[in-house]
């Protein structure tokens, strides 16, 4: 369980980092930030990059700034524990608390989590539910990608080989709900649900049921078409969600069980969203 040989460079700026990526002929360079997903893949030799570009020492990427009344910009190197500590977005605070264990949260970064594109990870699900916009840089380009379009499949994103995430624009939802079921404290969720209302529109994203976070379009329609979020409507939306997913089963839980969890966790997240009390439920400690 030791990585195959690779070269290692420390980048001083995003531009330098992506230039390193571009300069590698076999296009197998990788950015390393917190390393919480990449290091195990390296150790198991499931990832064999020829070059690791360390971006941890690039200044300015570890900040959260309020850019408008309803949005924040989060630097790619912002650690999960900083998401836990910030007070702008209670939803991000809550979701980040569910990520791994404290050692993982201390190192892992938002850019790393999004780029890694694990379909069960918390931040990609929140990104899709809140409609985050991902700011991407290449050697000669700068562009933005909607979270919805960023995730392509399991551990697959839409970055070109020479691009990196620099920051994300994160809308602050008016109301939100978050529910996750893990077998143990700190595990990836068997099913994770984020529901967020941004500018009056509710989106629901579910993780653990496909190769990327999956939007519950029918449930969203039910919720968005209704003036009030009654218990009956929530049940209806939860059932619609369950009916729309086709998860794979494994030894952690059968497909049927995961569908059952989708129903229950969509119900819980919508109740939390509907209660409007999500903010006050946050444990800020």
């Amino acid at each position: 369980m030791k990585p195959a040989p690779f070269d290692y460079v420390v980048a001083a700026s995003p531009r330098e980092a992506v230039q390193y990526l571009a300069d590698v002929e076999d296009a197998s360079a990788k950015i390393i930030a917190g390393g919480q997903s990449l290091m195990p893949l390296l150790a198991l030799r499931l990832a064999r990059p020829s070059l690791l570009v360390d971006i941890n020492r690039i200044p300015g990427l570890e900040t959260i700034e309020r850019i408008s009344e309803t949005t924040i910009r989060i630097g790619t190197l912002v650690r999960h524990r900083m998401l836990c500590a910030q007070t702008n977005s209670p939803l991000l605070h809550e979701a980040a608390r569910w990520i791994g264990h404290s050692a993982i949260r201390t190192r892992g970064t938002i850019g790393g989590s999004l780029a890694h594109a694990d379909p069960a990870a918390e931040l990609p699900i929140v990104a899709v539910a809140t409609g985050m916009v991902i700011e991407v840089m290449g050697p000669s380009t700068q562009r933005t990608v909607d979270a919805q379009d960023f995730f392509i499949g399991t551990l697959e994103n839409s970055l070109a080989d020479d691009e990196m995430i620099v920051s994300v624009i994160s809308p602050l939802p008016e109301r939100w709900g978050f529910a996750e079921y893990t077998r143990r404290h700190g595990d990836f969720g068997l099913v994770t649900v984020a529901a967020a209302e941004v500018q009056g529109e509710v989106k629901i994203a579910v993780g653990g049921v496909g190769s990327k976070p999956v939007r519950m379009l029918e449930s969203e329609g039910l919720v968005n078409d209704s003036v009030t979020l009654s218990g009956q409507l929530i049940d209806q939306a939860a059932r619609a969600a369950a009916a729309s997913v086709e998860p794979n089963g494994d030894f952690h839980g059968s497909a049927r069980y995961r569908i059952g969890l989708v129903e229950e966790l969509v119900r819980r997240s919508l109740r939390q969203l509907g209660s409007g009390q999500a903010d006050s439920e946050v444990d800020w400690s």
Binding site: P40, L44, R184, H185, G186, D187, F188, H252
Partner: peptide, 16 residues
């Protein structure tokens, strides 16, 4: 072996 790492072979933590 399907449970070849501690992500799949679940040992309880103090939380459990």
């Amino acid at each position: 072996l399907s449970t070849g790492t501690l992500m799949d072979y679940l040992i309880p933590t103090s939380g459990e």
